[in-house]
C-alpha cells in the first residue's frame, strides 16, 4: 500500500514536471517555428537559440501587476483560470507514456492509472475545461470577454459531439476503452488506427484543434474583433495559467492522438518514451504549422463546418465501421 502510494506520487510529480516543461518549451517552439514560417529568426537573445525565452517570459509575468476589474465578480474571476488549468493536467493521468520497465527491482508501469474507461475519463475531464473559459468571460464584466466566453462555449459544445463520435470507430474495432490495451492493439505500423480509421482520424484532428481553441478555430480570442476574447481582462500569473492551460490541452490532445491513432509509444530502435515524445512533438508542430498557414474561420463558417460537415461525417463513419465489424 505504502509502496504503491510512493510510486504513484513519484509518477505524478514526474509527469506534472514533464508536462509543465513541455508547455514552456511549446511556447518557445511556437515562436521559433512561426518566426521561421514568416522569414524571421524568432527569439534569439535569451540563451543559445533563445532557449531561455520561456524562463524570461515567466519572470516577466510574475512581476506584472495583477489587475482585477472593478466590475468583475471577484470569486469567479479568481476561480476561472484554475478551472481551466486543472482539467488540462488531469487528463494526463490515464495516458501510457511507455512500456513497463524495471528499476531497483520493481516493475514500473509508466501510467498513473490504467482505468478500464481510460478514454472516457479523458473526455470527462476535458469537457470540464470549458467552464474556465465561460466563467472567465462572464466574470470579467467586459463585453469582449463575455462575447469571447459565449463564442467559446458554443464552439466547444458543437465540436465535442463530433469529437466523441470520431473515436467510436476506433473503440468499435478495438473493443476496449483502456488506453493501454489500445496501444497494445497497434503493435505493427499497419495496425495503427490512422490506417484502419482514416476518416475518424481526420475528424478527430479537426475537432482537437477546435476544442483547444487554436487557429484556425481560435474565434474565442479573435484579436481583430474581440481584443483577446475571454482573457482580455486577465494579467500576470492568472493570464499565465490560461496560457499554460491552453498548451497543456494541446499536449494532452497530442497524447490522445498518439495513443489512439499513431501506435502510442511503440516504435523501433529508440526507447518507448522517446518515441512517444517524438510523436507528440510532431503533432505540436502540426498545430503550429496550421496556425501559421490558415486564416481564421468566420463564425457562421465555423458552426456550419462543425454541424453540417464533421458531425454527419462522424455519424456515417461510425455506422460504416459498425456494419463492417458485424458482417
Amino acid at each position: 500500500m505504502l509502496e504503491y502510494a510512493i510510486i504513484s506520487a513519484i509518477k505524478i510529480v514526474v509527469i506534472i514536471a514533464a508536462v509543465l516543461t513541455g508547455c514552456a518549451y511549446s511556447t518557445w517552439l511556437e515562436r521559433k517555428l512561426v518566426g521561421r514560417f514568416q522569414h524571421r529568426y524568432g527569439p534569439m537573445y535569451a540563451g543559445p537559440f533563445g532557449l531561455l525565452q520561456p524562463v524570461a517570459d515567466a519572470v516577466k509575468l510574475i512581476f506584472k501587476e495583477d489587475l482585477v476589474p472593478d466590475k468583475a465578480e471577484r470569486v469567479t474571476y479568481a476561480l476561472a483560470p484554475i478551472i481551466s488549468f486543472i482539467p488540462a493536467l488531469l487528463s494526463f493521468a490515464v495516458i501510457p507514456f511507455g512500456d513497463t520497465f524495471e528499476i531497483f527491482g520493481r516493475t514500473i508501469d509508466p501510467v498513473i492509472s490504467d482505468l478500464n474507461i481510460g478514454i472516457l475519463f479523458i473526455f470527462a475531464v476535458t469537457s470540464l475545461g470549458v467552464y474556465g473559459i465561460v466563467l472567465a468571460g462572464w466574470s470579467s464584466g467586459s463585453k469582449y470577454s463575455l462575447l469571447g466566453g459565449i463564442r467559446s462555449s458554443a464552439q466547444m459544445i458543437s465540436y465535442e459531439i463530433a469529437y466523441g463520435l470520431s473515436i467510436i470507430g476506433v473503440l468499435l474495432i478495438a473493443q476496449t476503452l483502456s488506453m493501454k490495451e489500445l496501444v497494445a492493439q497497434q503493435a505493427s505500423i499497419l495496425d495503427w488506427f490512422i490506417f484502419r480509421q482514416p476518416v475518424g482520424f481526420v475528424i478527430f484532428v479537426n475537432c482537437a484543434v477546435a476544442e483547444t481553441n487554436r487557429a484556425p478555430f481560435d474565434l474565442p480570442e479573435a484579436e481583430s474583433e474581440l481584443v483577446a476574447g475571454y482573457h482580455t481582462e486577465y494579467s500576470s500569473m492568472r493570464f499565465a495559467m490560461f496560457f499554460i492551460g491552453e498548451y497543456a490541452n494541446m499536449i494532452a490532445a497530442g497524447c490522445v492522438v498518439t495513443t489512439l491513432f499513431l501506435g502510442g509509444w511503440q516504435g523501433p530502435f529508440l526507447p518507448p518514451v522517446i518515441w512517444f515524445v517524438i510523436k507528440v512533438a510532431l503533432f505540436m508542430c502540426f498545430y503550429i504549422w496550421l496556425r501559421a498557414t490558415l486564416p481564421r474561420f468566420r463564425y457562421d463558417q465555423l458552426m456550419n463546418f462543425g454541424w453540417k460537415v464533421l458531425f454527419p461525417l462522424a455519424l456515417v463513419n461510425t455506422m460504416v465501421t459498425a456494419w463492417i465489424k458485424l458482417y
Binding site: 478500464n116 474507461i117 472516457l120 469537457s127 470549458v130 466563467l135 462572464w138 462555449s153
Partner: peptide, 24 residues
C-alpha cells in the same frame, strides 16, 4: 466507473454548460 464518467460527461460537461450559456 462508467456511470461516474457519464455523469460528468453528460451533465457537468454538456447540460450545465448549456445552462450557463443561457444565463450568460
Amino acid at each position: 466507473l462508467f456511470v461516474g464518467a457519464l455523469l460528468i460527461i453528460v451533465y457537468a460537461g454538456a447540460i450545465l454548460v448549456l445552462f450557463l450559456f443561457v444565463i450568460m
